[in-house]
Design a protein around this nucleic acid. Sequence first.
DNA 1: AATGAATGAGGATTCATTCAT
DNA 2: GATGAATGAATCCTCATTCAT
Lengths: 189, 189, 189, 189
Amino acid sequence: MPKLGMEPIRRAALVKATIAEIGAAGSLDVTVSRIAKRAGMSPALAHHYFGGKDQMFEAAMRQILRDYSAEVRVALAGARDPAARAQAIIRANFAQSCFDPAAVSAWMTFYVQAQTNPAALRLLRAYQRRLRSNLTHALRPLCTDPRGVADTLAALIDGLYIRAALTAPDADPQGTALIALTVLTKGAA
Amino acid sequence: MPKLGMEPIRRAALVKATIAEIGAAGSLDVTVSRIAKRAGMSPALAHHYFGGKDQMFEAAMRQILRDYSAEVRVALAGARDPAARAQAIIRANFAQSCFDPAAVSAWMTFYVQAQTNPAALRLLRAYQRRLRSNLTHALRPLCTDPRGVADTLAALIDGLYIRAALTAPDADPQGTALIALTVLTKGAA
Amino acid sequence: MPKLGMEPIRRAALVKATIAEIGAAGSLDVTVSRIAKRAGMSPALAHHYFGGKDQMFEAAMRQILRDYSAEVRVALAGARDPAARAQAIIRANFAQSCFDPAAVSAWMTFYVQAQTNPAALRLLRAYQRRLRSNLTHALRPLCTDPRGVADTLAALIDGLYIRAALTAPDADPQGTALIALTVLTKGAA
Amino acid sequence: MPKLGMEPIRRAALVKATIAEIGAAGSLDVTVSRIAKRAGMSPALAHHYFGGKDQMFEAAMRQILRDYSAEVRVALAGARDPAARAQAIIRANFAQSCFDPAAVSAWMTFYVQAQTNPAALRLLRAYQRRLRSNLTHALRPLCTDPRGVADTLAALIDGLYIRAALTAPDADPQGTALIALTVLTKGAA
DNA sequence: AATGAATGAGGATTCATTCAT
DNA sequence: GATGAATGAATCCTCATTCAT
């Protein structure tokens, strides 16, 4: 009995499985077969829905960004004043969910892909633009050079994240976030 | 056509070719065949000298770090006082040579490899340790919390580098370095 | 061109082709490619169904033993009394089918494999156990030391087989069997 | 300083190493490189002295047969009467030296090689001829059909050897020899 | 005599992708 | 919608062998 409306369900399952496999492998060296198996379907069906491996990766990247954006949005919703908004953005970038191995792998591969895959580069830029714009907006009432401080903070966040995720996996993420918060305080002063 | 003492020559050629291929591919998806061909020899010979693909990668990573270290060392040699030393370290991290596409790719793959390859992780940590130690040493006479400022600066440098290398390839690296220098000034104050 | 339930068909074809190739080569120096080609499929498909070369060899060994067992079973079915049973077992071991070049090669490689491949050793022991048990059972009514005579006969059969198969390929197998039958008579006396 | 008269030394070392490698591998899957390394020289030199892998194997086989012959000759030297001679031949075939893993492997590969390699077949036949002739000679004064009994005993020896060497490696070889001795007694009666 | 250098040929294995059902 | 069947292409790696020194 052919099922109707399976497409979104299948696609979602595949995207989820793709991210999980990238996380498990720690790289993009994942096979369509494994992804499909994890998603509970045949490799042929995965192809049917996505057309190819690259499109599956792209969909996975989009999902990663969507998840990240949601995290930020939730954090911002609870912030009442500009300073709280800036802090919320920083904290969101060091949320537990961002240190899930799958997420870490996904972000790292993102960076690698960005060098050759225009779609990945576009998405990475979108992320950076959004982070910068969020920070600038929050900092505007707090300092004279919101753009400059936002740029600094954004880069600092990325740098701290990489270090925390890769080379200090046991460190407390929120402790790491504190470093950024300190710079925020000095920059906003 | 010399017939003795080829090993160091061949190894060097292969390491260089490995880096170049990684740079050209923008990822670790390079074949031994291509590397060997670029180095002017047969794939079999490459295997003979390195034992396998992974060892070639590891040798390439070591070379990248050696090059980077040399850059820093040269920069430090010309610095006369602590402040100049700190600035020199920062500037060295944004030297033109660091933005060579091959170097960028190599660094990015470094990050990815670090998740699963212990050797890569070890090397990456060595780089981070050295950067932090260099900065701490230079900052000691300049501020009350040299370690903390060094941590911040190190992360900032990484974050700025990634952004400059990947998403703003046309930006002036030394302009980017200025952002770090500014934070240095504030932190050292 | 049926598209379902190919697995048993393919597997059987591969096993047959493996035995044939071993026979043609006279050793285990056969490639998956040749086996697959002989079986009318691509090497990749052979891997798909067996997972690897070793498993193909093991399946082939099992098949050889199955064929041998069938030969013995048929021979025993026509034997009415103990003496006839013992003779039937001996004759079955020198049946024409056992001197098929492929079978000879397979048996010889069996012996070689048994030294390093546990699966091969297990199978070889199973064959020897069965031969001994068959002989012991048949000899019980005929002599006072059925086990001892069975051991002797079993070894003699193997030795005669090797000599007949390898160094006297034109000799009449049933003539060779006579030697064993003579010992049987003396031992049973 | 070029050494003189190295050829026999090198050849002997290579033959010994070949047998040892075959023993270690349990098959003919040994590389010239490993043999040469074990013999303390370069693969190129091994080639120089033997011309190729096959010739090395052949020389190894010859050596195995020489060792075996020597064992028999020594055993025969101590035998005073025909019965003792026959027993000595049988015992020599189950000497400890024949159960050295390297020797076992060598014999097994012998059997395999005999199917395709004429030189191996020739050597194997020479061994069998000699065994038969030795036995016949010893049995002549003892029974009416020395040739027939010799054939039986020779095959029995081979069969027992294979079983003892491969599938009952812990059994006492001399216990196995007893089985052959018993048949000898009955046949000679 | 001896060897490091070098390679061509080949082999097992993997995988994305296509197709018929 | 869904999948088992099937493969071509590619990749890493091994090895016997040759050659210049």
